[in-house]
Design a protein around this nucleic acid. Sequence first.
DNA 1: TCTCAGGGGCGAT
DNA 2: ATCGCCCCTGAG
Length: 275
Amino acid sequence: MNRTYLPDYNLAITLLGGQSFGWDKIGDTFIGFTVDRAAKIKREGEYILWQTYPVHDDWDWLSSYLRLDIDYENIIKEISKDKYIKSAIKAYPNLRILNQNFEEAFISFLCSPTKSIVGIRQCIRLLADKFGDKLLLDDREISLFPKAERLAQADINEILACKVGFRAKNIHEAAQKLMKEPVTERIQSLKLNEARTELMKFRGVGDKVADCTLVYGLGFNEITPFDVWGKRIMQKYYGFNEKAKYEDMSLWMKEYFNGYAAWAGQFLFEYIRSR
DNA sequence: TCTCAGGGGCGAT
DNA sequence: ATCGCCCCTGAG
């Protein structure tokens, strides 16, 4: 295991909250899989012990995944102007947003509609076991997140067997569409609004799935996804009424948090939902 | 055993 | 713009 100084990073809530679905805490070690790497991370005081697989010692990958390139202090400073956010930061210090692979985040959130987080996690593991590459983490075999290419080739019934229900068709279609043209490269090159429009052209992608993909898979900081909890919170704490539209709440958050709505939302929704 | 909501979105009105 | 339905699971 490598040892790296990283005091201000809340591994538990960042890795096990609802932004990525491939992580488990086994004993005091976080073990997770993504589409191209698996990793072990363990906190030791102000340091982390870590290893990556199948490529070992890949700090370039891990630091990018953990998104250590952003100016976290500044973001915290910016969003702390809101009193609820301030409380949330106090309750969950050092919560972060991960930088996930675009296709991985996209496919993950295609599994999410009307599912609980445990449900999504279960689907992702079944898909990984059926379609993902296998590799050995020391003494333990683990499946990587399936590549879109593999899902595109799959029989729809195989995908259905992963308990995704009516989402199977959406996942299959999306994977095929990602293979057809260089859609991934193109979407990754677009600005926020254009990328959002492109994502919404996929079957199964509405406001929520699009925004989750934009924030967790494409690195946009300036918007936040609203789930049912998010909507309730906006009503309870920020004066939106029951009829408030997704777009209205989204625009307001974008303005209010001035470029960092993603981070504000992450704190806010994590904080209130877990109470 | 049953009901119900769960980090929504689609398609018919 | 509204509303029933999509498939499946775990909680109550």
